[in-house]
Design a binder for these strands. Structure first.
Lengths: 215, 215
DNA sequence: CGGTAAGCTGACGGCATGACAGGACAAGTG
DNA sequence: CACTTGTCCTGTCATGCCGTCAGCTTACCG
């Protein structure tokens, strides 16, 4: 799938090269967690990695390029979110559990990768197609599964005909992502995390099935 | 409310000064719409405004400071979103209309100010309290109204006791904001704006009242 | 051991930042 | 009209980051 890792000037990266490359990515990642995206400088990343700015430019065209790389790694990892939904039922008590586990897994994933996801979100919102595709890739698994679930319930007549499965699924996923991004915000608002989750799960369940869960 | 407009070095700005100041803000605003936040430079804003970088620094400590100013202006303007909900009913057909109008007005507001709202969202997500407060200020009107609506329905026994009004309201508002930020995204997904709105309204209605709307 | 390619960096021109001092300008005063 | 006062803007400068290149060091291989 992925060809050889290459430097900007076309050389193939060997063992050592890949190590420095990865170290730069790690340091950048850390940097993004601790300071605003706008203030992350190449020279700081390089210093943190114990190398020089020139080395950075050997592996990445610019900061954005490196961020895309990190996000790509995370995206493949995030494909595992499908497991939260594959083959799950949306009926009865099982449906309520599905909703809860989805919310749980999603928030956890977002919390782990919040720094990089913020940047991806920004890039996508700014209209950058690369970031937009990446965001799709991350959310697609969940989105498609949700969309399928709605469509299936719809075909059984359990959901109104005029509901658009893709629109509902996309909106719910956007909600999960947004809430995850501003988890701290809710806390200051007087809503604790433990309270937030069941209410989110309720909204997801309502959105997918159109009815309240049986707990 | 607001004291006199002051320059960084403490002078009070007069007629002419306020004009250039505003012009700088306008140009910055425009700039944010056309290029990534990370790439907006003081020198470009100054050039666009037909002045020099030094002038910019006379009125604002940095780009972030100016952004906060713009966002503040928008926030007071955005308080008008309350009208979308004040005194509206959530029962029967009126409830469905309330949901629709809320979605409509919200998306429109977001579309108008998307560039600056992106930056506010980023700042808030990064943990900057100033941006966070600003985001609250913008969303508070809608959020409180929604929260009140849920609480009222709850007191009448129409909504389950274990629902947390603030959590539900906050999540719904976050959903609206997120979907608005990525409106273009949905389009590429094969969901058209016209289809998106009613489905969003459905989700809002479901979330607030716990039941499907009567159309 | 010598050749070859990978890996890294010092150094440099270019540009943005942010501060200051001083000049231009408008308005009021005698 | 000259003079004063305070606002408004810019030229200039030290500083620091960007992004590139030539060239040095290191590792691998026959």
């Amino acid at each position: 799938m992925t060809g050889q890792v290459r430097t900007v000037d076309g050389r193939v990266a060997g063992r050592r090269g890949q190590a420095t490359r990865q170290k730069l990515l790690d340091c950048l990642s850390e940097m993004l967690s601790s300071s605003p995206y706008r203030d992350v400088k190449v020279i700081d990343v390089a210093r943190k990695a114990g190398t020089s700015p020139a080395t950075f430019y050997q592996y990445f065209p610019d900061v954005e390029g490196a961020v895309l790389e990190i996000a790509e790694q995370m995206a493949t990892e995030g494909a595992g979110l499908t497991e939260l939904l594959d083959g799950r039922s949306w009926v009865g008590k099982a449906g309520w559990q599905t909703a809860q586990e989805l919310v749980d897994g999603f928030l956890e994933f977002w919390r782990k990768n919040d720094a990089i996801l913020r940047v991806v979100d920004l890039g996508a919102a700014e209209g950058d197609k690369r970031f937009y595709k990446l965001r799709m890739k991350i959310l697609n698994s969940v989105n498609n599964s949700l969309s399928d679930a709605v469509a299936e319930l719809q075909s059984k007549g359990k959901v109104d005909k005029d509901v658009n499965p893709a629109a509902v699924a996309g909106s719910l996923v956007a909600m999960l992502a947004a809430v995850a991004s501003h988890q701290k915000g809710f806390q200051t608002w007087g809503v604790k995390q433990a309270e937030l989750k069941p209410n989110l799960a309720l909204l997801v369940h309502l959105g997918v099935t159109g009815r309240k869960p049986t707990k």
